[in-house]
Design a protein around this nucleic acid. Structure first.
Lengths: 271, 271
DNA sequence: GTACCGGATGTGGTCTGACCATATGGGCCC
DNA sequence: GGGCCCATATGGTCAGACCACATCCGGTAC
């Protein structure tokens, strides 16, 4: 296995990555199962362990595997599924590098979440008419209950800002989950740290945080109610105004502002 | 930052990653500049080169740096900015692992792109009234011209499917760029390979590809015209129907279908 | 003086072999 | 039979080395 790594051919760790990726794709290693040990993979492919490790690092960064030391179950590289890990890390790094404007994060979040709230409301509305309905009727109910619980926790007076922001994120994500789109959920989950960061920055610019906190809670309640009622239009509008309202109030939306307001009064004429 | 759940100790490559990330965030190494060599970083932090390499692999996978061998400018790890690289890879891996349904990709793409087309149309409409206007008036014009060129190329009869799909993606992304949201552009760019993949799959299910290709070109023209006119409603509706129409025709939208149709005649009851 | 050519240098890419820390599980001792 | 200790398997890390490549700089040939 001579030194076979020079430009023109794929690097060794990329070969390993392709091999592992293919194995995962065809189900050779399913969710929750363990990959062979690094040494075994290296021997199988005739490469060195460092190369295997580099590929493993990438899979880990993408949220595909979770490394575990020791022995027995739970040890070794386990196939997991945390799409938000990779997406979130990527977004975080690019925001950190300063090439992703905060206003873009706000706008993208608003667009996706507005859409998600509409879908969520429609799904809830679709199952509501069937009280005893089996079909996935329980899921939204549980999510809604959890969202309500988070909302209550957020209403606690004197809650530290950091805690509030964390609960706020949990609340939003819980509602997003009702929409049932894993990719959207992963993207928004990935934006979580970026969003928390700009929200925290924004709070520092406020004259009266408690006042704003109260308003945010009221808005949250409105969003939750709209989704629970199955009112897509109201849910979309509420979350749209919620996100852009805060952004505008804190002067974060540098360049654009609310923009087209998808799902809001927009031309939604069709709606 | 590291994947949660690690007991106590921080792994070495994570320390390196944090160090590099911080340096990039504070501008110690700006876009296009070179990072210190792997050996230098290792010595600075008192770690081994393999650990530095693992961190470097992650940054590379996220599209933050580009490795370059040799010497002189262009060699070494250069700070780049390709948000789509990380997002795309993450999406690709998760779709490959079978945990991200194609229908989710379609829905998320439709939601984001519908919104983006509305923004794009509004931006074009905002600059149109000022024929000689300096303010970023030329950008949309250039993008529109490029989109038109791609549309022409796509209309070529007998074009191989792979080429058509590639041009199709380029066309969509070119229009998305007009919206001016880097994050949305990066996400949709990242979805590119996943989208190409499902489009190619879909084409194979069609009875008459040439017929569909013609229709897609007509739809593309309608989208382009709407954006060029600055008609946000029409642009949003057109792209929404374009994406969901193809998806429905090829039976790819397994579970949901058009859904709430943001910015389009919602309820799209139609379907 | 100019053009060419070859080594010096610095970079990432890879390999080898080793040791450490941890977690499990089985065998040994009590 | 129960509890303790060590074998074992795993990832985490390190050190040193070699290779392929790209550039730069010097010397040499013309």
């Amino acid at each position: 296995m001579g030194p076979s790594g020079y430009p023109g051919t794929v690097r060794t760790h990329e070969r390993v990555l392709a091999h592992l990726e293919e194995g995962i794709a065809v189900g050779r290693w399913g969710l929750g199962e363990r990959l062979p040990g690094e040494r075994a993979i290296a021997e199988d492919l005739g490469v060195s362990r460092p190369s295997v490790r580099e590929a493993m690092r990438i899979l880990e960064a993408m949220g595909i595997v979770r490394p575990g030391v020791g022995s027995g179950p739970g040890a070794g590289a386990v196939v997991v599924d945390r799409p938000a890990a990779g997406l979130g890390a990527a977004v975080r790094l690019h925001v950190a590098s300063g090439t992703l404007p905060v206003s873009d994060v706000v706008a993208t979040r608003a667009a996706l979440e507005t859409w998600a709230m509409r879908v969520a409301a429609e799904r809830v509305g679709a199952v509501a008419p069937q009280p005893g309905g089996e079909p996935r009727a329980g899921v939204p109910a549980g999510r809604l209950a959890e969202a309500r619980r988070l909302l209550d926790a957020m209403s606690e007076p004197g809650l530290p800002v950091a805690d509030f922001v964390g609960l706020d994120q949990d609340f939003h994500l819980e509602l997003v989950r009702i929409a049932g789109n894993q990719l959207t959920e992963a993207i928004l989950g990935g934006l979580r740290s970026a969003i928390s960061s700009y929200v925290s920055d924004g709070v520092r610019r406020l004259s009266s945080w408690p006042t704003t906190a109260d308003r945010l809670c009221v808005e949250h309640a409105a969003i939750l109610d709209a989704v629970a009622r199955g009112d897509a239009d109201a849910a979309g509008q509420a979350v749209h105004q919620h996100i852009w309202g805060f952004s505008t109030e804190t002067g974060l939306a540098g360049d654009g502002g609310p923009g087209p307001a998808v799902g809001a009064p927009a031309g939604a004429g069709g709606d």
